[in-house]
């Protein structure tokens, strides 16, 4: 029998993966290859799988992630710069049956919002904190962030981050892991398909902890900012693996 060239039929019953139902049709404003898009997709998938669309409220930050409310079809609140955890605390206390999460970048969570973040963690509010760490201020043009690696060149550290002048990068996940109120701290990345799958499981666990009232769950995403780093998206993913992962190792830091 002659080998017939089979064609896969593009019909709904053959569909195995597609755009999550909770993502809106709006084209994301993020640069090509930005990790934010992948993380938005994971949040949309997990909320959809948990059937929580009508009972979820996100708190969006100031930074590149500010327009998250345009892309995921759930309820959102927009917090002042760095204050997302404080806003989420109020919402969780008023609506304990809702899934409340914050979506913050490193400039928002670990610079201007450090105080709010640490106190919210210490109070053990049952919220999920999603922290996107790309080691740079992406939106404002690639300035040095508290999380910028030693020696890393940015717009405001053109000779590389100097420890004597700027201090050491901030490992906020390890810092908050020692607090009693924090239940789950993990660090993930979305540069590879395997990484995305692991990150999705971590996100689901964080959201479930939040719904079960188990205390605060913190999911850090080590991410790229290829525009700020001045690299192609593929080179940025590689640079992240070579330089970010040794300093920000992936995996669960606390899981009780």
């Amino acid at each position: 029998m002659a080998q017939k060239q089979e064609e896969v039929q593009i019909v709904p019953e053959n569909r195995v993966y597609g755009r999550p139902a909770l993502l809106t049709d709006r084209v994301m404003h993020y640069c090509p290859g930005c990790s934010h898009g992948t993380i938005h997709k994971l949040i949309a998938e997990v909320i959809d799988e948990m059937g929580m669309q009508d009972r979820t409220i996100g708190v969006s930050p100031v930074g590149c992630g500010v327009f998250a409310y345009n892309y995921i079809d759930i309820d959102w609140a927009e917090a002042a710069h760095g204050r997302a955890c404080a806003v989420a605390t109020a919402m969780k206390r008023l609506c304990p049956d809702k899934l409340i999460f914050t979506y913050q970048g490193d400039g928002d969570l670990s610079a201007i919002g450090t105080g709010e973040t640490i106190h919210t963690c210490n109070r053990g509010e049952s919220i999920a904190v999603i922290y996107v760490n790309n080691a740079i201020y992406g939106m404002t043009g690639g300035q040095m962030a508290p999380t910028t690696l030693v020696g890393m060149k940015t717009a405001t550290s053109p000779n590389g981050r100097d420890v004597k002048l700027h201090g050491y990068p901030f490992k906020i996940a390890e810092m908050i892991a020692c607090l009693e109120g924090v239940r789950y701290v993990t660090r993930q990345s979305v540069g590879t398909p395997a990484g995305v799958r692991r990150a999705k499981k971590a996100l689901r666990k964080a959201f479930e902890n939040s719904m079960e009232g188990k205390g605060l769950s913190f999911v850090e995403f080590v991410s790229t900012c290829n525009s700020g780093w001045k690299m192609t998206p593929v080179a940025a993913n590689q640079w992240m693996e070579e330089h970010m992962f040794p300093f920000y190792p992936l995996g669960d830091i606390k899981n009780e």
Binding site: V8, R15, Y17, M28, P32, S35, G37, P193
Partner: peptide, 20 residues
Amino acid sequence: TGCASCAIVCPDSCIAVYRQ
């Protein structure tokens, strides 16, 4: 092979995968 690796990492969720 329809493994969906491409769609899983796509930041703009513009890939749909079909398998037969």
